[in-house]
């Protein structure tokens, strides 16, 4: 069994998506979903599924376990730019910074973090190097 690290952030199907929102007044996209636009304070942005692929904008690797983290190290950590004009902070499946390059295509994946007390895989969103 798989359990999401937090409900409402992503879908875990064959083609996963990130669950965002779009402001009907200023057009800005948000992630995670907001109930008020953080940019113009207009209420009730529309829920949207964000594009599952984008380009790499910044990246590093985490080499020591941060507080509250039970998964493996090292792991990739970076920022991916999506075509909606939004940059997403995310784990990266590639943990060697030298293997990544600015602007390279990245694709959304759902990855396992660790097993919970019931033996379920706790999963979260991440980006993997994609086909050019």
């Amino acid at each position: 069994m798989r359990t999401m690290v937090q409900p409402g952030l992503f879908t875990d199907g064959e083609v996963p998506t990130l669950l965002g929102s779009r402001c009907t007044a200023c057009g800005a996209h948000h992630f995670p979903r907001h109930d008020t636009c953080p940019y113009c304070a207009t209420e009730d942005p529309v829920p949207v599924e964000l594009a599952g692929s984008g380009t790499l904008w910044a990246w590093t690797a985490v080499t020591s376990p941060p507080p509250g983290y039970q998964g493996e190290i090292p792991y990739g950590f970076g920022i991916v730019e999506l075509p909606e004009g939004i940059r997403i902070i995310a784990r990266l499946t590639e943990s060697d910074p030298a293997a990544l390059a600015a602007g390279q295509p990245m694709e959304l994946r759902i990855v396992a973090l660790h097993a919970d007390a019931e033996g379920n895989d706790v999963v979260t969103y991440a980006f993997a190097p994609g086909a050019p």
Binding site: V5, Q6, L9, A58, W59, T60, V62, S64, P66, P67, G68, Y69, Q70, G71, Y75, F77, G78, I79, I89, A90, R91, L113, V122, T124
Partner: peptide, 26 residues
């Protein structure tokens, strides 16, 4: 050690997204 901050939600910590020095690195 790495500063643990109540600023982050538990899921952010669990997903490894509360790694303060990594934001500095980016």
């Amino acid at each position: 050690g790495i500063i643990r901050s109540s600023f982050f939600d538990p899921w952010q910590e669990e997903a490894g997204l509360a790694a303060t020095p990594s934001f500095f690195a980016l």
